[in-house]
Amino acid sequence: MELMTRQETWNITYNHALGETASWFYAQIRDHSKIYGRRCAATGRVLVPPRSFSDQTLEPTTEWVEVGPGGRIEAFTIVYEEFQNLPPPPYAFGYVLLDGADTALGGYFKGLDLTDPAKAAERLKMGTRVVTKFAEQRTGDVLDFWYEIA
């Protein structure tokens, strides 16, 4: 028998309140090209991206700390497959421990030839030093910056 399908698309837009902590973080990126973390008073650890409380201690964080722009690669991947609504491949991204931070911040790795996976992976291996670069036009977002090998 004829088996039919019905196509449906979900179409809802969200305006997520960022709250004071993330709003201030994004304003510094937009206006000053600077990245800040928040220090947990209980442990002294600097959380990047900044959280208003630590999920380990459940204590509020108390202090802004500027971090970066240098750092080291903590994790990376290189995506070679196309996924719906995600950027065209290949692209590399991952997490970087910025100087002065205790936790790693996600971002793209740019300025690399990704055509040979093994070679590209070798250049991005864990511990590699990188530097944060900022876009000239910044909107106040995670995509305003990326990492390049130092």
Partner: peptide, 11 residues
């Protein structure tokens, strides 16, 4: 108020 994100409201 919008000064707290949803995550912070839950906290």
């Amino acid at each position: 108020a919008r000064d707290r994100s949803l995550e912070e409201i839950i906290y």
